[in-house]
Amino acid sequence: MKTMKPTQKLIFFFCSMLVVGFICYSSGHLHLWGQKPLYDKQGFLLQLDTKLPLELVYKYGNLSEGVCKPGYAEAKMTSIYPKFMRRVPMFLDRNFKRLAKVGNYFPPFGFKTQEKIIDSILTYTKNYGLGEELDSLSCKRCIIVGNGGILFNKSLGSRIDDYDVVVRLNEAPVSGYGKDVGTKTTLRITYPEGAIQKPENYEKDSLFVFSAFKPLDFKWLRQMVFKEKLRGTEGFWKSVAHSVPRDPTEMRILNPYFIQEAAFQFIGLPFNNGLMGKGNIPTLGTVAITMALHNCDEVAVAGFGYDMNTPHAPLHYYETVKMSTIKESWTHNISKEKEFLRKLVKANVITDLTNGI
């Protein structure tokens, strides 16, 4: 084996140093050459567009327009957010204690300390799905109907009613507004302070879906389920319903995982040690959209989006309160939430019928 001459050793040494230096320089200065990270800090793809990835073109490209696309929302969501895991149950069932992701968190991000009361409620309600007909569908098209004034005079009622699952929020009325918001309600998601207070205003054929934001909410639900007289209302921030005209079999508990995921994974709100704090609670509308992404094949929304440039526009479709009444909320971060929803619309994960997002 030949030994290297001193001059060869010197050249070899300098060449090695140049290679190492070039690698170090490159890794530290990639941004000078226009290289950017592919994903934002929440884990979403930075470059979003409505085009289908090639593998989805082959899967959905030949389907007729209007035909439900099985797994579409999951496929589109995964293409822009690789960490997305679809199979998360919509409602709590008798096996809810196995849900580790929410078992370690206090309300609203979990059910810690509330296991006993939830167990008693679920034993009584007995049903944990959407119902036999909807649960058996091989492809579900869902729409979340927000309460925004943007719905007014849009005549979207018949389009909304065409969806398999129509989700409404809190006390937003249907009667008298059918032309714009439809007449069908599959489920209405609410919490004690947002629930309809007049029994006659409840639709006859919808599920009452409860979303808890504090431990006291579960006590209220138990009284509603067991038809007990309402007691202990001091902890609510406004008046609450004294009864819910629903059979226990028509009542459900929304999986708190959707509040947790919307807040910390999707929007990036302050974690605050997993406790409710300033600006870290997602709105119920975004929670409902998160739920739909996990449980529906196609997802649409209507009545979403606050336009602060139109202060005299109606805030809600059913009342005269103006947009200017909105002030920065202690619990919500509207601007960060809008940023998240715009990602979904821009990538065509969800369809916005009123173009408010």
Rank of each mutant, 00 (worst) to 15 (best):
K198M: 10
E337G: 02
W237D: 15
G34Y: 11
N201G: 04
N355F: 04
H316R: 10
R94A: 09
F340Y: 12
L137R: 12
F264N: 02
Y39N: 00
L230M: 11
K346Y: 03
K154G: 00
K59M: 09
K343C: 04
M85F: 11
E203F: 00
V299W: 09
T331Q: 14
S136G: 09
Y39F: 15
M4K: 15
L54I: 06
E200V: 07
L92E: 03
M4A: 15
V19I: 13
L32Q: 14
G235V: 04
Q8D: 15
A263T: 06
Y58H: 14
Y317D: 09
G149T: 02
P173G: 08
M224P: 09
T113E: 07
A302T: 06
V88W: 01
K126H: 06
I143Y: 05
D205V: 01
L92M: 09
F226K: 13
T331A: 13
E228I: 05
I253W: 08
K51L: 14
H294C: 04
K198L: 10
L137I: 03
C142I: 01
E339I: 02
M77T: 05
L230K: 04
N273W: 08
S243L: 08
K41H: 07
I267K: 02
T283G: 02
G235R: 04
K198Y: 12
T190F: 05
Y60R: 05
I121H: 07
R86L: 03
K36W: 06
C15M: 15
A241W: 06
N170G: 04
T3K: 15
S243K: 14
P270T: 13
L56S: 14
I189T: 06
Q42C: 05
S175L: 12
L353Y: 13
P311Q: 00
L92F: 08
S175E: 13
A75R: 11
N127C: 08
F91Y: 11
S335P: 02
L187C: 01
L353Q: 03
G232Q: 07
H29K: 11
L130H: 05
E193S: 10
I357Q: 01
A263D: 12
E193V: 14
I189M: 12
N104P: 00
W220M: 03
E200L: 00
N355K: 07
N309F: 10
S26A: 10
S206V: 00
I143A: 03
L134Y: 14
N295R: 08
N170Q: 11
E234C: 03
Y177V: 02
I281H: 05
S175T: 12
V145K: 08
